[in-house]
Design a protein around this nucleic acid. Structure first.
Lengths: 349, 349
DNA sequence: TTGTAGGCGTTATCAC
DNA sequence: GTGATAACGCCTACAA
């Protein structure tokens, strides 16, 4: 048992054929006579050979069948976000036909620990939410000459990206509120930079996270002076905290809140209930993402539905195209406005 | 640009040293004089060489630095479960020191599509929630002779597993309720088999999902006749539906509900509120998992805290040990009972 | 400290 | 339909 594992040459010898013939039996790339095939297969079974060693095959072929997915956060954190989860699903679907799998990679791996962009046998890489941190990784990957694509983030220059019309979409929600007569509106934003703790932000705050900045711009296109509270993450509890801050002073209560994610919106709704405000009679709330928020029933958020799984799928397809020698173009997706039961005309003064 | 990528030999030639010396510069396994090192590094830079090709290195070393994680469900579904998410985090942490990354694999991949247990360059595999489906995959992996470990599932025979004292833990929660005087108790279970739709289950229902069966057994050790409603998944909304069914008939209302997951428990609490029942004055509710349920505040569930991240970490460490030639023993983890504010003495009749 | 040699296991190519 | 040959790019004894 401690003896070396059988190789395809062993099998070939046992079967009385050449290694290349045995190889062909396993790869199916060339016709083989039935007699030969079964002789090889029998020999393989006898020797406990279970097929070509993927490592050797990938060296020879120049392909590993592995697509790296790079997150800038802890894996657990990334998967707490339903949008990313959906995106992963779409991505997995799209790379499957390539015969590829997804390798989870964290950016900023402490040195020497863990597979990295530079040491993993990747055929291509997908960067998720590329902001400052990922930029360096990017250089490393590109130098390796493998296809790279970025989802929700700007990698600069000529890296194809999967984008979303964040600003326009958010503007739609804001316009919807304006058409309902709302004028006192507050915004609950996603974090404005890495490591941010929840707080009100000044009008001229520097925002390094693209998604936050773009959605905020869309809201401010309609409500330039709306007070903005940025949460520490996309969670119901963060939205709750934000909502408490917003509804704290009865004199300054807004009649509508624009939340930058559905989870935040769910929290805001809960804060409104806590403050004795009815949604949507007293306060309208809009979300962003269009995910199913577990436990939010009977509310149906008025929100922007983003094609999360499609984004992942598009990334996978772009990767496939680039692996085929194609160019890999950027694609931009559009959100769909969906009116639920959390927005209504502004209450009379 | 269409020319072949530089290899370490090219770099060595350019630097005027031998390939092995250049190799050593990159691997750092042997001391090299500063002069030589910088000559090699310069040559590499000039040629655009970014380091050894991982495919070749992994063939040579016999290690790919990749650990496969096999789920039996859609990736998106798997990551909806906070417990699995935490587990992945622990696993990622534990394999990082190995210099390994996690490759996501789905079981039952349609033939020919996607990386599989048999074609991916894995150093080891971790199966998550091994029930029927995974059994076959298991055979394939074991034949390949790579270390395998199973989390929350029985792979039979001699496959090391990371287990949990589901039955004993659930019994503790039930005993707690009994000590509070509850006698009319209902159980909200996880799905009893793949593809299950929520419904009451008969006392002798066949339960093919291990976790469900074990926790149910624990509850029935104390309340053998408790009516049991099995949800279709671990979600707040499923718990809500279950709770509605349970609280539907005022005449038959239990004074306590044992839920098999925290998310289910959260839904049950919401159903209780809906039915005008106070928690815990009118109904006590227990959960299972000890996760943070986003949006459940101000409730703190009475629950069993399972060491989810530790389970992942243990799996990673077991893998590391096996890769080192060790034996890979099974490990069983213990849940810790945590009393929150969702259980109280049974109300007087 | 540096160089030489051999092979890790496979598969593409081409000839037969 | 089958076989010989030559890489794929690297690493590690071992020798110098």
């Amino acid at each position: 048992m401690s003896t070396r594992r059988a190789t395809i040459s062993d099998v070939a010898r046992e079967a009385g054929v050449s290694p290349s013939t045995a190889s062909v039996v396993f790869s199916g790339k060339t016709p083989v006579s039935d007699a030969t095939r079964s002789r090889v297969l029998d020999a393989a079974a006898a020797l406990g050979y279970t097929g070509p060693d993927p490592r050797a095959a990938s060296l020879r072929r120049g392909r590993s069948g592995i697509v790296g997915v790079v997150f800038e956060e802890h894996l657990g954190t990334a998967f707490l976000d339903p949008v990313k989860t959906l995106m992963m699903d779409g991505l997995a679907d799209a790379v499957a036909p390539l015969g590829a799998g997804l390798l989870l990679l964290r950016d900023q791996e402490s040195v020497g620990a863990g597979a990295t962009l530079t040491t993993a046998p990747l055929d291509a890489a997908v960067l998720v939410g590329c902001s400052g941190l990922l930029r360096e990784s990017l250089a490393a990957v590109r130098a390796r000459g493998i296809p790279v694509i970025v989802i929700e983030g700007d990698a600069g220059v000529d890296v194809p990206r999967i984008g979303l019309d964040n600003r326009e979409a958010q503007r739609q929600a804001a316009s919807h509120l304006r058409s309902l007569g709302h004028s006192r509106v507050a915004i609950v934003a996603l974090p404005i930079r890495a490591g941010w703790s929840r707080d009100w932000i000044p009008g001229d705050a520097e925002i390094t996270i693209d998604v936050t900045r773009e959605r905020l711009a869309g809201a401010r296109d309609v409500y330039p002076d709306a007070a903005t509270y940025a949460a520490a993450g996309s969670f119901i509890d963060e939205g709750l905290a934000a909502g408490r801050a917003i509804f704290a002073d009865p004199a300054k209560r807004p009649t509508a809140v624009i939340a930058q994610s559905d989870l935040l919106a769910a929290g805001v709704i809960r804060a409104a209930e806590e403050a004795g405000l009815g949604v949507p009679q007293d306060v309208s709330v809009t979300g962003f993402d269009g995910i199913v928020v577990d436990g939010l029933a009977p509310y149906e958020l008025t929100t922007l539905v983003q094609p999360a799984a499609e984004k992942g799928r598009a990334a996978g397809e772009a990767v496939a195209a680039m692996l085929d020698g194609g160019e890999g173009a950027s694609i931009s997706f559009t959100c769909v406005f969906r009116e639920g039961n959390t927005t209504a005309p502004a209450p009379a003064e």
